[in-house]
Simulated scan of single mutants.
Amino acid sequence: MTTKLSLKRLTLLALPLAAVAGVSTAASADEWTPTRSIEFIAPANPGGGWDTLVRTTSRVIQQEGLADQNFAAINVPGGGGAVAWAQIARDSGNPHKLFATSPPIILVPLAGTSRHDHNDFTPIARLITDYSIVLVRDDSDYGDLNELFAAIEENPGLSIGGGSAPGSMDHISIAGLASAAGLNAAEVNYIPFSGGGEAMTSLMGGHVEAVITGAGEASGQLGAGSELRALGVSAPERMGGVLADIPTYQEQDIDYTFDIWRGVMGAPDMPAEAVAYYEDLFARMQETEGWQDARDQLGWLDAYQSSEAFGEFLDAQKELFSEVLSELGLLGD
């Protein structure tokens, strides 16, 4: 099946690239510092991957004393990120506005549901790699992924929720997984929610059969006494912490992995000296004990890229995802 082969390629451009993490921005960063609080936007409701990244980085920066100004976490949900992007796009040149980003900045515009894409904003830095995780209610009859997909094959109406728009990250992730498991990826009954937190709430309420979301954002909902149970994680090998007992897809004879890169972008046409300041800030943040503790607890992997390298990476991701959405029939006009 051609869809399966191409979807498996999604991991090739999203691997952590420690070799490109080198940054020489300290001298330039000294030329500019924020003069007021920084608006740090999560383009979704609380509880999702963008929200987790924004609040975690803001907390670490404050606790480690890395910036004189506060990073104010702001949630702007809607349209799989499109509502926030439209607001940010109108604030060209503002050096005090940042937002969390991940594959939807590529996927949502390609699907035709946002007129703004990554080229309309300023890349700051890629920070981490996360993974997808499939969750069911703790009282679910499904013991593993193969049992879930067998039920879906028998009853295609069974729904799987996710925290991103149709054709966006969670949808692509579950479509690729279903394809690798032998199903028709285009027929997966995917239900979009405005963030992973809302998707998990819907799962607990019995409104969907399963949820696919980021492993990092789900980690706080798992463990002793949890109402949720994980069937599998998209990492190439088992993760740590509360996720250590969750089998990978490959352990369940489904040859598929999926990486979720996450990073930071700024308003359009952000001054170069402000970009240099933030590049340096996030590079220093990743060296702190506070960041490393939070990263490990959330199951993230450091995958830093500077502004220039991140921009080139985004261009390559657009080319790759264009092929995948076209094969799924989800590429917008």
Rank of each mutant, 00 (worst) to 15 (best):
E31N: 08
D138P: 01
R115H: 13
A178V: 08
A165L: 13
L331T: 01
A14P: 00
F258T: 00
A274H: 06
A89V: 01
V134E: 01
I172W: 00
K97W: 00
M204Y: 01
D91N: 14
P16K: 03
L13Q: 05
L325M: 03
D280F: 02
V108K: 09
D139F: 07
D144S: 12
D139V: 01
D253G: 04
P156V: 05
T113L: 02
I174Q: 05
A111Y: 10
L281Y: 12
P34V: 00
S92F: 03
H171A: 09
T56K: 03
T129N: 15
G223T: 00
P43E: 01
I38M: 07
G216N: 14
V208F: 10
G48S: 14
R295D: 08
L127V: 10
D68F: 00
R229M: 09
S226Q: 06
F149R: 02
A178G: 14
V76M: 15
T33C: 06
Q221I: 00
V136W: 01
A309R: 11
S92D: 05
S179Y: 02
V60Q: 12
G48H: 08
W300K: 07
V134F: 02
F149N: 07
K4G: 06
S202P: 03
F313G: 09
L15S: 12
S102K: 06
S102H: 12
A89N: 08
I212S: 02
G162M: 02
L135W: 07
T257H: 11
